[in-house]
Write a protein that binds this DNA or RNA. Structure first.
Lengths: 350, 350
DNA sequence: TACTAATATTTAAGCGCTTAAAAAGAGCGG
DNA sequence: CCGCTCTTTTTAAGCGCTTAAATATTAGTA
């Protein structure tokens, strides 16, 4: 039973033409109810499954959408994918996954090999600074929606969290908690969302008339190790430049910061406030629990996919730039009062 | 430029036949070097991209492989996918991702809709107890490789970690550390790997002539919350039945256990040993750090995919049952001596 | 009864590609 | 210059499906 049934087999079995079978299967008008029923019964009997390749060849639609992103092994991206998947599943689209490992060459390679006919649309979180490699896809009228890591000078829909306001909130929160010398351990220089979070941070400091120092801003990678290193760098500053709070570009780096602080027995919260960005579940498990700005990861995925489907189905859907709000989550790492070792049990029980 | 170039366009441009173009592009012998060069140059010039649907229609190969799994938002599965992706990328296969959310109905639905022609092969970590729904795919000779969550009575290749020996090692480790009353908070009843880990646990107890009690084995879900609940249940046992160590079926549940213990101010390690399974990175971040059995997640993915590709390319590759060893990782949660609050900084600096 | 309109089915072409078989060319010995 | 072999190219059919146009069937109307 290796050879699957085709509409030809159905036509032969029922002694009618293939085109009638084709139309009966798709429930088109212009075919009598009786024929429809007979065809459908026979299709079930012979376990007919349509050949998607043949269908795609004819009508140019594959019902596949691609996702290109840097990683899937962190909370944020895996949750985004889950959101995408949910929408895709409900609309009978398949998702084809491409992981770049944060390597621009790999991203280039993947986009180059992307056939014009393998995908109906594309969801991208890029690791490149330029969007040149998407122009070809765009000229072939493959709809693309960018999420999270977008490219600013590309005329294309995008869905992001409100990086600017999130950073502004996080920094303002530190100020309100009484921290006065606030450093920022940022992402790689040049990444749009790194810049937006940086801007939110500097604007918040300006608004509250707090000092800013070049030394308090450190660009590096996104990993926990980077957070640890950056924090060590900060701690080596001259005493009068020593910050008393750190706003990290993401939770991984905030965790790295707490590791560095713990190692030097600096009390987190009391002596040095720490706040991250993302709301990785880990940040509520650690001791102290880490304050953060929650990103709506699932919704980023869901909305990106919904928007892409709109572009697919109505060619005239306008380009959109959707920005979802984040939510400040206050935990122990930004509390000056109270030792977290005593509060820990209480908080964990929540 | 919406309509992509086809081989017909190339043929017309060069004034040769389409079949010559087709053969020249695929570098077949039986076509002169000169023609090959001319065709390839023209293909580059006109930005020709092959239509994969048409190719698939002819030769029956899609270069797509499907992955069906319960979740992607945890360390284990996202790392497995990364391993799969790595191999697929290197062999020019696309991966189509299906997430079941641990819902058997959804898994059934996905497999039912899987066209015979959309996929060359399938990688599955099932959430179902029966494998009936894969028989159709198998009868169509679509190669399938199961990983992690397998179905025992299906004649199909599988790749798993050594659940039995991992559990045996974990339990033996607890014994060696001096714990004598060891409980096991397990996964759902009936899942093959749950049963294997349980067997490793009971066999280790038998080997070391330690007592076993029905009350010490609790089946439930895989979440942290389940781990917390199960631990509370254990802590409510009569004093003479109170365990002094817990072997959790995975790290999430082990973390849940530590949460429950912390809440009651029971000293982890000293009063109650805790060990998990997986080696989720979180378990080395928490305080205390949690002992575990590391699963080779990336390799599970890599090897599963390599095996699947073998099945795809050589029909006669025999069914294989590959079992990869885990690795015991000893951390603070199974140390009777020394307070982890003092060791924490030291360990974190590693 | 002839003719039109409406409905149901078939014919035939084609989506972009591959491939077996046929045809055309080239080179060479006799 | 003919016949033969070897290489290169073209012809033609077909993968499984859709769809416009043609045809057949039925019912309705004058």
């Amino acid at each position: 039973m290796s050879n699957p049934t085709t509409i030809k087999d159905l036509a032969r079995a029922l002694n009618i033409s293939v085109s009638t079978v084709s139309r009966a299967l798709r429930d088109t008008y212009d075919v009598s109810q009786e024929t429809k029923d007979r065809v459908q019964a026979m299709a079930a009997e012979l376990r007919y499954k349509p050949n998607f390749n043949a269908m795609s060849l004819v009508n140019g639609k594959t019902h596949n959408i691609g996702i290109i992103l840097p990683f899937i092994t962190n909370y944020y991206f895996s949750t985004v994918i889950t959101g995408i998947q949910e929408v895709a599943y409900n609309h009978d689209y398949n998702i084809i996954l491409y992981v770049t490992n944060d390597s621009p060459e790999r991203e280039l390679n993947i986009t180059r090999n992307l056939s014009a006919t393998g995908l109906d649309g594309l969801l991208v979180s890029t690791c490149c600074n330029s969007g040149e490699h998407f122009k070809e896809l765009m000229s072939r009228e493959i709809p693309i929606v960018f999420f999270d890591r977008v490219i600013d000078d590309l005329i294309v829909s995008r869905v992001t969290q409100d990086d600017y306001n999130g950073a502004f909130q996080a920094t303002s929160h530190l100020v309100k908690q009484g921290y006065t010398k606030i450093a920022h351990i940022a992402g790689p220089k040049g990444l749009p969302f790194t810049e937006k979070r940086l801007k939110g941070y500097t604007d918040a400091l300006k608004r509250h008339c707090l000092p800013m120092h070049e030394e308090w801003i450190i660009y590096s990678g996104f990993s926990q190790e980077c957070g640890e290193q950056d924090t060590n760098t900060l701690l080596k500053l001259q005493p009068h430049l020593l910050p008393n709070a750190i706003f990290a570009v993401n939770d991984r780096k905030a965790i790295g910061a707490t590791v560095a602080l713990k190692r030097r027995n600096i009390q987190i919260g009391k002596e040095m406030g720490v706040i991250g960005f993302t709301n990785d579940p880990v940040s509520s498990l650690l001791s102290p629990t880490i304050s953060t700005v929650a990103e709506p990861a699932f919704d980023i995925g869901r909305i990106s996919c919904e928007l892409l489907l709109k572009h697919l189905n109505k060619k005239q859907t306008p380009i959109q730039d959707i920005i979802l709000p984040g939510k400040l989550i206050v935990r122990q790492s930004t509390q000056k009062e109270g030792s977290y070792t005593s509060k820990e049990a209480e908080d964990a029980s929540k």
